[in-house]
Design a protein around this nucleic acid. Structure first.
Lengths: 153, 153
DNA sequence: GTCCCTGCAAACGTTTTGCACACAG
DNA sequence: CTGTGTGCAAAACGTTTGCAGGGAC
């Protein structure tokens, strides 16, 4: 599949603003639209969505029982290749984040796994610690305990 | 079976102070010491050591063929529980870092997976983005291309 | 009609576990 | 001697893939 340039819609914070829906962007790109793909894309729409493949599968099948786990994996991988989803790993399971327009990091609850998008200042890496590397990206994960889990403890 | 040259562990030296070797700390804690456990612990000794379980297994078996992969997993997990190793995930595989005394983050080559310890200033998370979480930890991963892979490209 | 997307199931790589035996303390 | 660490093999996961059939364009 070829890669169309990433649409930099609304750099910076979104502040709750809804961007062009994933479905619409995909249609515009000529993505072949099937019932399964539509349901999967709709499942991945929203803010603070960080689902693992089997969670996407469970949600999708409640809407469309005629969907298989393999298709969920295939579709998620394709959306990552297209740059429409970001993939990250939490506790050994891959998770998918639809928020690609807005550069951000993650705040994870160590107790329940709930994950939120946050925007800290990116840390720098002093030149004397770069070991000759060409820096491409920084990923920051804050770990903590969410209000619900703190209350329950 | 062929005999492979002995793999040197703990070859990375920086000008830091020498800490109590892992083995000694474990003995002091009354850790039951067997040949397998000793070899695994020795494999995990050094700086910039970020091995996955099967890599630990391969290195350990060159020294002690009477070691099984299950024991490597059991031992690594126990050392993580004891707080003597840190576990992190890179590309779906768990890796283990013996550097627990020194708070640090990671610089990973996206091409070859080589991982180094680095010490950037920890990013802060503005109060208005904490979503009520009690912050416990920050994990930072820099991704880039190491000198060798840059030269090869 | 042509592709390519789909479901199914099997394969895959990693990690865990059940069990009888061996050995450190 | 006792408790627990061990090897082996099988199972448990999450993920990918091969294949025949079906649906979007």
């Amino acid at each position: 599949m070829e890669s169309t340039p990433l649409v930099a819609v609304g750099c910076g914070r979104t502040g709750g603003l809804t961007l062009t829906p994933l479905i619409d962007r995909l249609r515009d790109r000529g993505w072949r639209l099937t019932a399964q793909r539509r349901v999967i894309a709709e499942t991945m729409t929203g803010e603070h969505v960080h689902l693992a493949a089997d969670e996407v599968f469970e949600r999708a099948r409640t809407v469309l029982p005629e969907v298989s786990l393999a298709t969920v994996y295939n579709t998620l991988n394709e959306l990552v290749s297209l740059g429409e989803l970001r993939e990250f790993t939490h506790e050994g399971r891959k998770r998918y984040d639809p928020n690609v327009a807005d550069r951000h990091h993650h705040l994870v609850c160590v107790a329940c796994g709930r994950t939120l998008d946050v925007h800290p200042d990116d840390p720098g890496l002093p030149a004397d610690q770069r070991h000759g590397f060409e820096l491409l990206d920084v990923e920051v994960t804050f770990r903590g305990r969410c209000p619900d889990c703190t209350a329950a403890a």
